[in-house]
Design a protein around this nucleic acid. Structure first.
Lengths: 185, 185
DNA sequence: TCGGATATGTCAGTGACTGACAACAGGAGT
DNA sequence: ACTCCTGTTGTCAGTCACTGACATATCCGA
């Protein structure tokens, strides 16, 4: 049922746009009532952002299993590369969803919220690994920013793998912060 | 009028919580009609996020006026320090607002959207300074993440100045990425 | 005094979302 | 077969955010 509703919603959002489709229409296409729609998803936006729990789980376990010798930032690069297959597998679904999100402010807001939630999950996983709390949130925040940058580059230029874009982005960060830091204490 | 509505909204959000206050109540306390409220603010959330244009302007001019010798990340640190006074001046208003935001998911979403918008403005200002586009968005993203981290630390521990927290955060970033980058190309 | 711009009030309407209750299906135990 | 239980769905009424259209008031320059 969830799948049916997600499929119907994505179709309608693409056909008429998010604002022009009502929850009742989505439910109708899925063969149920509006009320049923809101029993499966808390609101019209959430229907495009499923699998958050799975993503958090994948990230958390990857962070936990990363080689012990790596520093926080290295752990994140290693982790992001390790979920590359998962992201590529989901691309057929996320690709059309992103097109809709890209032209709908309300959906962009929700996407940012999801990213923030993921950042918090990453920070928590780093802490579980022994990284000090403040350092963990800082690393998670910047790491997610770099990841987002690499992901956008990957969307625009799929000829290179996500891993390549990740290497480039983390390399660029290295170059940036090497010149941008005050004298170390 | 805007001020009156903002004041009324903040009061009511603090008294009853965001969800428990209707737009009509805010308008009534300000002595106007619900319709008038929506003429001044596009929605119930926006009333707590004013001054975005002013912030973007301040950041943009600061970035433009930063010493020419600085690298992108140094420009950002310099810029954030330069608006410290502005942020401290606004603190009497933003402080209670943040309390409400902190316990209201809907408002947190909007705050993230505002941060994203600011990040885009920063990236644009960096480009105007001659920084290459990709590098500018990467620097803006990570720089804003670091700034957000410093700002949160400042909220929790106001005994140190925002500038001190900024120095620490950028210093920590330097330490993080120094060990976390792949071998430079 | 007139005309026009701007701010507000009024009203009706759409649509997201919620709570309460009924109806229905399948499964487990008797 | 009967019953109980649990989970899913339909139905209905209601609240509230937000919008468009139109009327009204206020004020300011010509």
């Amino acid at each position: 049922m969830r799948r049916r509703l997600q499929k119907a919603a994505l179709e309608l959002y693409r056909e008429r746009g998010y604002d022009r489709t009502t929850a009742a229409e989505i439910a109708a296409r899925a063969g149920v009532t509006e009320r049923t729609f809101f029993r499966h998803f808390p609101d019209k936006r959430e229907v495009l952002f499923d699998g958050e729990a799975a993503l958090h789980a994948a990230l958390s376990t990857a962070i936990a299993e990363a080689p012990a010798a790596l520093g926080p930032m290295e752990v994140l690069l290693w982790t992001f590369r390790s979920i590359e297959r998962m992201l590529e597998a989901n691309r057929p679904f996320t690709e059309p969803a992103r097109e809709v999100i890209a032209c709908t402010p309300a959906l962009q807001e929700r996407e940012l919220a999801k990213a923030a939630s993921t950042t918090a999950a990453v920070a928590a996983a780093l802490q579980r690994r022994g990284v000090e709390a403040n350092l963990a949130t800082l690393a998670a925040g910047t790491g997610m920013a770099v990841f987002g940058h690499a992901a956008r580059a990957w969307i625009e230029d799929p000829s290179l793998s996500l891993g390549t874009h990740l290497e480039r982005a983390f390399g660029a960060l290295h170059g940036l912060s090497a010149t941008g830091a005050p004298t170390p204490r």
